[in-house]
Amino acid sequence: MEKSDLRVKIKSLQLRSPLILCSGTAGFGLELKPYLDFKYVGALITKTITLNKRGGNPPPRIAETSSGVINSIGLENPGLRGFLTQWPEIKKLPVQIIVSIYGENKREYEIIFRELNRIKEIKAVEVNLSCPNLEKKIISQDKKKSFSLVRYLRGLTKKILIVKLSPEVSDIVEIAKSILKAGADVLSLTNTFSALKIDIGKRKPFLGNIFGGLSGPAIKPLVLYRVYKVYQALRCPIIASGGVLNYKDALEFILAGAIGIGLGTANLVEPDSAEIIFKDLLSYMKKNKISSLKNLVGNGCK
């Protein structure tokens, strides 16, 4: 019997699985330990770290809509120091850790990178240029600003630089192209869509922060469209995240051009979603006599 292989390589990052736990839906991994066998996980992207500790947005922070979830956590995190304090415990997890970061300005990024660069176990960093739950404008919606920021960040580190983009732009290919040109190694497509829910009983917005970001199966076709467009135009390494709940969803993204499959909302429902999807992907490949997942990447593009 032919062996099927789910290993993927994203730039120099060798991953045993294409399944990646999205930032914000896996914490720092510690709470997932009782539920998840990490051998099915390619990498875990941490909750976004900021230089200073952030309390996050007022509750309620989470709302359900048809086939989707709106969240407005607001980057609650213990800050760089808090993360570094927990690092000795985090690094014991048997999984590749990618650190997600966000800085208010260049100086903050500089300090964050200065610390992260010292940690050799961290091979890649994801820059969150697309959180919809901040008062500031989303950086990755501005081509010029994001180009200049990513160019600056490129100069700060030799680690693999992943940039997470907002889906809410008129031309995602243009933005993607300029961010790659600025020196990003990998694109993370995409963050959530700005969304609203109104409580008709109270006649006011449901979420404490009024607006939130929509994720889940509701956005899958929208993100798939963007992954397809970007891959068609740029043939670059893409980590796709947009409502993947099962192996069929994952396959769609792989066929559209993604090499890494982000699991976000899926983790909130099934903490072991990576294991379930990995096993299903493997049976699919065996059944269809596909030896390596790599061979499927972008295969669905016409």
């Binding site: 839906t25 309390g55 996050g56 509750p59 922070r61 956590i73 609650e76 909130l268 903490p271």
Partner: peptide, 20 residues
């Protein structure tokens, strides 16, 4: 209102005297 239920997503916070 709750997300993961296991302490990961920080979706279900309430305000306490010691923060969320």
């Amino acid at each position: 209102f709750m997300g993961c239920g296991i302490g990961v997503c920080r979706g279900c916070v309430i305000k306490t005297k010691q923060g969320f």
